[in-house]
Amino acid sequence: MHKIKLIIRGGFDGQTPVTQAPIFRLVEGWSEAELESPAGILPAGLWGQVPAGDPYLLHACLLTVNPLDPQTMIEVRTGAPTHTRAQYTPSADNLRLTLVRPSDEIRVVTSPQGIVKLELLVESIGGVNELGSRLYEWSDAANKARDTGVRVVRFAANGAIPGWLGTLHVIYDSVNAGNITLPPRVIVPLDAVLTVTRKGPGIPTLLAAAGDSFAGGVIGQAIQRSGFIMNNGEQWTWVAD
Protein backbone atom coordinates (compact mmCIF):
# COMPACT_ATOMS: atom_id res chain seq x y z
CA MET A 1 0.00 0.00 0.00
CA HIS A 2 1.37 3.39 -1.04
CA LYS A 3 0.21 6.38 1.01
CA ILE A 4 0.66 9.70 -0.76
CA LYS A 5 -0.38 13.12 0.50
CA LEU A 6 -0.29 16.18 -1.78
CA ILE A 7 -0.68 19.64 -0.28
CA ILE A 8 -1.51 22.76 -2.28
CA ARG A 9 -2.27 26.32 -1.28
CA GLY A 10 -5.06 27.93 -3.27
CA GLY A 11 -6.71 24.69 -4.46
CA PHE A 12 -6.60 22.53 -7.58
CA ASP A 13 -7.68 24.26 -10.80
CA GLY A 14 -8.38 21.12 -12.87
CA GLN A 15 -6.44 22.56 -15.83
CA THR A 16 -2.69 22.85 -15.19
CA PRO A 17 -0.55 19.69 -15.68
CA VAL A 18 2.09 19.05 -13.02
CA THR A 19 5.10 17.91 -15.04
CA GLN A 20 7.84 18.67 -12.52
CA ALA A 21 8.10 16.09 -9.74
CA PRO A 22 7.63 17.64 -6.27
CA ILE A 23 9.96 16.84 -3.40
CA PHE A 24 8.56 14.04 -1.22
CA ARG A 25 9.39 13.37 2.41
CA LEU A 26 8.09 10.79 4.86
CA VAL A 27 5.69 12.35 7.38
CA GLU A 28 3.79 10.10 9.81
CA GLY A 29 3.83 7.21 7.36
CA TRP A 30 2.79 9.29 4.34
CA SER A 31 4.91 10.24 1.34
CA GLU A 32 4.09 13.94 1.52
CA ALA A 33 4.84 16.74 -0.94
CA GLU A 34 3.68 20.31 -1.47
CA LEU A 35 2.66 21.27 -5.00
CA GLU A 36 3.24 24.71 -6.40
CA SER A 37 0.10 26.46 -7.63
CA PRO A 38 -1.36 26.33 -10.25
CA ALA A 39 -1.93 22.59 -10.49
CA GLY A 40 -4.83 20.41 -11.55
CA ILE A 41 -3.74 17.43 -13.66
CA LEU A 42 -1.49 14.74 -12.19
CA PRO A 43 0.26 11.92 -14.10
CA ALA A 44 -0.97 8.42 -13.26
CA GLY A 45 2.57 7.41 -12.29
CA LEU A 46 2.63 10.13 -9.62
CA TRP A 47 6.29 10.85 -10.37
CA GLY A 48 7.50 7.35 -9.49
CA GLN A 49 5.59 7.03 -6.22
CA VAL A 50 3.46 4.10 -7.48
CA PRO A 51 4.35 0.69 -9.00
CA ALA A 52 6.01 1.41 -12.34
CA GLY A 53 4.04 0.20 -15.34
CA ASP A 54 1.30 -1.53 -13.31
CA PRO A 55 -2.38 -0.59 -13.13
CA TYR A 56 -3.47 0.18 -9.59
CA LEU A 57 -6.52 0.82 -7.46
CA LEU A 58 -6.83 4.35 -6.12
CA HIS A 59 -8.71 5.63 -3.09
CA ALA A 60 -8.70 9.41 -2.90
CA CYS A 61 -10.11 11.89 -0.42
CA LEU A 62 -9.87 15.65 -0.07
CA LEU A 63 -9.29 17.50 3.19
CA THR A 64 -10.36 21.12 2.75
CA VAL A 65 -10.77 24.18 4.92
CA ASN A 66 -14.22 24.92 3.49
CA PRO A 67 -17.06 22.41 2.95
CA LEU A 68 -16.90 20.53 -0.36
CA ASP A 69 -19.01 22.26 -3.00
CA PRO A 70 -20.65 20.81 -6.14
CA GLN A 71 -17.69 21.70 -8.39
CA THR A 72 -15.25 19.62 -6.31
CA MET A 73 -14.28 16.42 -8.10
CA ILE A 74 -11.60 13.95 -9.07
CA GLU A 75 -11.53 12.62 -12.60
CA VAL A 76 -9.54 9.70 -14.01
CA ARG A 77 -9.18 10.02 -17.76
CA THR A 78 -7.23 8.48 -20.62
CA GLY A 79 -4.30 10.11 -22.31
CA ALA A 80 -4.73 11.61 -25.76
CA PRO A 81 -7.34 11.30 -27.13
CA THR A 82 -8.84 12.21 -23.76
CA HIS A 83 -11.89 10.36 -22.45
CA THR A 84 -13.27 10.44 -18.91
CA ARG A 85 -13.22 6.99 -17.28
CA ALA A 86 -14.37 7.95 -13.78
CA GLN A 87 -15.57 11.13 -12.08
CA TYR A 88 -16.71 11.59 -8.49
CA THR A 89 -16.42 13.76 -5.39
CA PRO A 90 -13.51 12.45 -3.27
CA SER A 91 -14.99 13.34 0.12
CA ALA A 92 -13.39 12.22 3.37
CA ASP A 93 -16.02 9.47 3.88
CA ASN A 94 -16.15 7.97 0.38
CA LEU A 95 -15.44 4.28 -0.26
CA ARG A 96 -14.73 4.65 -3.96
CA LEU A 97 -11.87 2.62 -5.45
CA THR A 98 -10.94 3.44 -9.05
CA LEU A 99 -8.75 1.52 -11.47
CA VAL A 100 -5.91 3.73 -12.79
CA ARG A 101 -3.72 2.71 -15.73
CA PRO A 102 -0.16 3.92 -16.35
CA SER A 103 -1.29 5.99 -19.37
CA ASP A 104 -4.07 7.77 -17.46
CA GLU A 105 -4.24 11.27 -15.98
CA ILE A 106 -5.79 12.30 -12.68
CA ARG A 107 -7.67 15.60 -12.80
CA VAL A 108 -8.54 17.35 -9.53
CA VAL A 109 -10.86 20.35 -9.11
CA THR A 110 -11.58 22.29 -5.91
CA SER A 111 -12.82 25.77 -5.11
CA PRO A 112 -10.09 28.33 -4.29
CA GLN A 113 -9.16 28.26 -0.60
CA GLY A 114 -6.24 28.58 1.75
CA ILE A 115 -5.00 24.99 1.79
CA VAL A 116 -6.12 21.66 0.34
CA LYS A 117 -4.75 18.20 1.14
CA LEU A 118 -5.27 15.33 -1.30
CA GLU A 119 -4.75 11.90 0.28
CA LEU A 120 -4.15 9.00 -2.12
CA LEU A 121 -4.07 5.32 -1.15
CA VAL A 122 -2.58 3.20 -3.94
CA GLU A 123 -2.67 -0.59 -4.20
CA SER A 124 -1.33 -2.55 -7.15
CA ILE A 125 -3.87 -5.00 -8.59
CA GLY A 126 -1.16 -7.67 -8.77
CA GLY A 127 1.07 -8.91 -5.99
CA VAL A 128 0.50 -11.45 -3.23
CA ASN A 129 -3.09 -12.76 -3.15
CA GLU A 130 -4.20 -9.93 -5.45
CA LEU A 131 -5.03 -7.75 -2.47
CA GLY A 132 -6.16 -4.94 -4.74
CA SER A 133 -8.83 -7.12 -6.36
CA ARG A 134 -10.23 -8.10 -2.96
CA LEU A 135 -10.28 -4.46 -1.87
CA TYR A 136 -12.15 -3.51 -5.03
CA GLU A 137 -14.82 -6.18 -4.47
CA TRP A 138 -15.28 -5.06 -0.87
CA SER A 139 -15.52 -1.38 -1.78
CA ASP A 140 -17.87 -2.00 -4.70
CA ALA A 141 -20.24 -4.05 -2.53
CA ALA A 142 -20.18 -1.48 0.27
CA ASN A 143 -20.74 1.38 -2.17
CA LYS A 144 -23.72 -0.32 -3.82
CA ALA A 145 -25.28 -1.18 -0.48
CA ARG A 146 -24.99 2.41 0.71
CA ASP A 147 -26.05 4.06 -2.56
CA THR A 148 -29.13 1.92 -3.19
CA GLY A 149 -30.14 1.13 0.37
CA VAL A 150 -33.12 2.74 2.08
CA ARG A 151 -32.80 3.89 5.66
CA VAL A 152 -35.40 4.97 8.23
CA VAL A 153 -34.75 7.49 11.01
CA ARG A 154 -37.24 8.28 13.77
CA PHE A 155 -37.45 11.53 15.73
CA ALA A 156 -39.50 12.22 18.88
CA ALA A 157 -38.01 15.66 19.61
CA ASN A 158 -35.78 18.33 18.06
CA GLY A 159 -32.93 16.89 16.02
CA ALA A 160 -30.65 17.19 12.98
CA ILE A 161 -30.40 15.05 9.86
CA PRO A 162 -26.86 14.13 8.74
CA GLY A 163 -25.87 14.07 5.07
CA TRP A 164 -27.33 11.04 3.29
CA LEU A 165 -27.13 9.02 0.06
CA GLY A 166 -29.94 7.22 -1.75
CA THR A 167 -33.30 7.39 0.04
CA LEU A 168 -33.84 8.39 3.66
CA HIS A 169 -37.24 8.15 5.36
CA VAL A 170 -37.76 10.36 8.42
CA ILE A 171 -40.69 9.67 10.75
CA TYR A 172 -41.62 12.24 13.40
CA ASP A 173 -43.65 10.66 16.21
CA SER A 174 -44.34 12.96 19.16
CA VAL A 175 -47.16 14.75 20.94
CA ASN A 176 -45.08 17.93 20.81
CA ALA A 177 -44.04 20.13 17.90
CA GLY A 178 -40.35 20.00 17.02
CA ASN A 179 -37.67 21.29 14.67
CA ILE A 180 -35.60 19.02 12.41
CA THR A 181 -32.55 20.69 10.87
CA LEU A 182 -31.33 19.66 7.43
CA PRO A 183 -27.60 19.18 6.71
CA PRO A 184 -25.74 21.73 4.55
CA ARG A 185 -27.18 21.25 1.07
CA VAL A 186 -23.74 21.05 -0.60
CA ILE A 187 -22.99 17.67 1.01
CA VAL A 188 -26.20 16.02 -0.26
CA PRO A 189 -26.02 14.46 -3.77
CA LEU A 190 -28.53 15.63 -6.39
CA ASP A 191 -30.04 12.13 -6.64
CA ALA A 192 -30.63 11.74 -2.89
CA VAL A 193 -34.26 11.70 -1.74
CA LEU A 194 -35.69 12.54 1.69
CA THR A 195 -39.23 11.74 2.81
CA VAL A 196 -40.67 13.16 6.03
CA THR A 197 -43.83 11.78 7.65
CA ARG A 198 -45.73 13.09 10.66
CA LYS A 199 -47.05 10.18 12.72
CA GLY A 200 -48.08 11.70 16.07
CA PRO A 201 -50.10 14.85 16.85
CA GLY A 202 -46.98 17.03 17.10
CA ILE A 203 -46.10 18.97 13.94
CA PRO A 204 -42.42 18.88 12.90
CA THR A 205 -40.81 21.76 11.03
CA LEU A 206 -37.92 21.20 8.63
CA LEU A 207 -35.28 23.93 8.94
CA ALA A 208 -32.65 24.68 6.29
CA ALA A 209 -29.04 25.02 7.46
CA ALA A 210 -27.47 28.47 7.58
CA GLY A 211 -27.13 29.88 4.07
CA ASP A 212 -29.61 27.39 2.56
CA SER A 213 -33.29 27.75 1.77
CA PHE A 214 -36.27 26.06 0.19
CA ALA A 215 -37.61 27.24 -3.18
CA GLY A 216 -38.81 30.80 -2.87
CA GLY A 217 -36.32 31.67 -0.15
CA VAL A 218 -38.27 29.97 2.68
CA ILE A 219 -36.04 28.63 5.47
CA GLY A 220 -38.61 26.40 7.20
CA GLN A 221 -41.36 23.97 6.17
CA ALA A 222 -44.00 22.61 8.56
CA ILE A 223 -44.99 18.98 7.91
CA GLN A 224 -48.76 18.57 8.15
CA ARG A 225 -48.78 14.98 6.86
CA SER A 226 -45.82 14.03 4.66
CA GLY A 227 -43.46 15.46 2.06
CA PHE A 228 -40.54 14.85 -0.27
CA ILE A 229 -37.37 16.94 -0.45
CA MET A 230 -34.40 16.92 -2.87
CA ASN A 231 -31.35 19.05 -3.59
CA ASN A 232 -31.77 20.75 -6.99
CA GLY A 233 -28.25 22.20 -6.96
CA GLU A 234 -29.31 25.68 -5.80
CA GLN A 235 -32.08 25.20 -3.22
CA TRP A 236 -34.10 22.49 -1.54
CA THR A 237 -37.02 21.35 -3.72
CA TRP A 238 -40.11 20.58 -1.67
CA VAL A 239 -43.38 18.74 -2.42
CA ALA A 240 -45.94 18.11 0.32
CA ASP A 241 -49.38 16.51 0.52
Results as ranks from 00 to 15, higher is better:
T197I: 08
S124M: 06
K144V: 10
V186Y: 06
I74E: 09
A86T: 11
M230T: 15
I41N: 08
T64N: 10
I180W: 02
A222N: 04
G200K: 05
I41T: 12
H83T: 15
M1Y: 11
T148G: 09
N176F: 09
A141M: 13
L168M: 10
Y56T: 14
D104K: 02
L6T: 07
V128I: 11
A192V: 01
G166Q: 04
K3E: 15
A145S: 13
S174F: 02
N179Y: 06
G178S: 03
P102T: 02
R225W: 06
T19K: 09
K117Q: 15
V65L: 11
G220K: 10
A192F: 02
P183W: 02
D212S: 06
L121Q: 13
T237E: 13
G166W: 01
E32V: 09
R101F: 14
I4A: 05
F228I: 14
L121F: 13
F228D: 03
T167G: 01
K199Q: 12
T82K: 11
D140G: 01
G14D: 06
P55S: 14
N232S: 14
D69T: 13
L206M: 11
I8Q: 07
D13W: 05
G149K: 08
D104L: 04
A209N: 15
E32I: 03
G79K: 05
A160H: 04
G10D: 09
V100Y: 04
R185H: 04
P81C: 07
I161Q: 03
F24S: 08
I74D: 08
R96T: 14
D104F: 02
A44F: 04
I23A: 12
T197E: 15
A209H: 14
N66T: 12
Q221W: 07
A52G: 01
Y136V: 06
P70M: 07
R151V: 13
K3A: 15
L131Q: 15
P183Y: 02
L190I: 15
I180M: 02
N94H: 09
L190P: 03
Y172S: 02
E28L: 05
C61A: 08
L168P: 01
I74Q: 14
G29P: 04
L168W: 00
D140A: 12
R198V: 02
G48S: 08
E28H: 06
I115S: 13
L168N: 01
P22W: 00
A60Q: 04
T82Y: 15
G132Y: 07
A157H: 12
A177S: 10
A92C: 07
A60W: 04
W30S: 05
V239C: 06
L42C: 07
V153Q: 15
P51E: 05
T167A: 11
P43M: 03
P162I: 00
A240E: 14
G217E: 05
I180Q: 01
D93A: 11
I8H: 06
G200A: 06
Y172K: 00
G159F: 01
Y172R: 01
R85I: 15
P189Q: 05
A192Q: 02
L58T: 14
E234F: 11
A222S: 13
M1E: 15
K144G: 14
P22D: 08
Y136W: 11
